[in-house]
């Protein structure tokens, strides 16, 4: 019983992180109909920047936890956002009118470039960050107990905040209206005077920023990372996006939570060695049973 509850708590935080990364996939897919293969590696880059930001801030003698976390978040989100913009500019924009296959391959190339670039500049070894926030709340359940660390609470809080802000931006602001218009019909939007190239860039930047949030939170919680972490988490976040219905923003968040919870339960109750196999099988199953996902609209083929 206590294991189940503990795994539910872990799954909730894991799921909110998946949700954050899935937003990047789902928004890019919604707007240009492409899977951004380099997105997992954007997350990886943000993990490195997190560690660098913490190292820099402590070097300059800052020791108060709130300042470090806010500073790290700010730096990481800003720099990762710039990465998102540049990736779109180099690997996607020149291929706007090419075949889908070309864009996919170029995105794969970008993903390789990012991995190798980080590996070459930071070395292949695993890196880490010091534990900054300790302590936990404990509840006694039966014979055992359930533990919620403060870090997990922070993850939940910040990811919910991030999703909330993003939902507000997309639903209520002019920028969000432009994004939604471009998603509906790119040609028409550009006829109405929307700079669709700029909107697409913005979407890449937003996606990268959300991945950066996830990168900071996971790195602070988990501590260790290497240049390869983006790969598996990228596939899982994509699974979350498909589960929720690719192209749908609330779907990405919902899909992330469901995937995180079910994966945590699988890992806790059945086998943690095969939890990645589980998530992947889930992806194939969704594609067979309901390719449009939970909240997505079924695709109507244009003949």
């Amino acid at each position: 019983m206590d294991i189940v509850l503990q795994q539910l708590v872990n799954g909730l935080t894991l799921g909110s992180v998946y949700g954050l990364i899935a937003i990047g996939y789902t928004m890019v897919y919604g707007i240009i109909g492409m899977i951004n293969f380099a997105h997992g590696d954007v997350y990886m880059v943000s993990a490195y920047i997190t560690a660098i930001a913490i190292a820099l801030l402590t070097f300059f003698g800052i020791e108060s936890f709130p300042i470090i976390i806010i500073g790290t978040l700010f730096l990481t989100v800003a720099v990762t956002g710039a990465y998102g913009w540049v990736i779109e500019r180099i690997a996607y924009r020149p291929l706007r009118n090419s075949s889908r296959l070309s864009v996919l391959i170029s995105a794969i190339g970008m993903s390789l470039i990012l991995q190798n670039y980080v590996q070459l500049s930071q070395g292949a070894n695993q890196q880490g960050v010091p534990t900054l926030l300790t302590g936990a709340i404990r509840f006694t359940v039966g014979d055992g107990f359930v533990q919620i660390t403060y870090m997990k609470l922070l993850i939940l809080f910040i990811s919910l905040l991030g999703m909330g802000v993003l939902t507000y931006v997309i639903q209520k602001t002019k920028l969000g209206r432009m994004c939604r218009a471009t998603q509906q019909d790119r040609k028409m939007a550009s006829i109405l005077g929307i700079d669709t190239d700029k909107v697409i860039s913005t979407v890449f930047v937003i996606g990268a920023m959300m991945a950066a949030l996830a990168g900071v939170l996971v790195t602070l919680d988990y501590g260790a990372f290497d240049f390869y972490v983006g790969f598996i988490i990228g596939i899982k976040a994509f699974t979350a996006a498909v589960l929720g219905g690719i192209g749908s923003l609330p779907g990405a968040m919902l899909g992330g939570l469901i995937l995180g919870l079910s994966e945590a339960l699988f890992a806790g109750l059945i086998s943690s060695d095969y939890k990645d196999v589980f998530s992947f099988s889930l992806l194939v199953l969704i594609l067979i049973i309901r390719p449009s996902g939970l909240l997505g609209k079924p695709e109507v083929e244009k003949v």
Binding site: A53, A55, L56, S121, Q122, G128, P130
Partner: peptide, 25 residues
């Protein structure tokens, strides 16, 4: 832009919890 992108990743070489600056690169 290159400064923003390369600055942290290339310029600050992580070394344990500390770092060494590599501004030349």
């Amino acid at each position: 832009l290159a400064l923003i992108l390369f600055g942290p990743i290339v310029g600050v070489l992580l070394d344990g919890y500390g770092f060494s600056a590599e501004f030349g690169r």
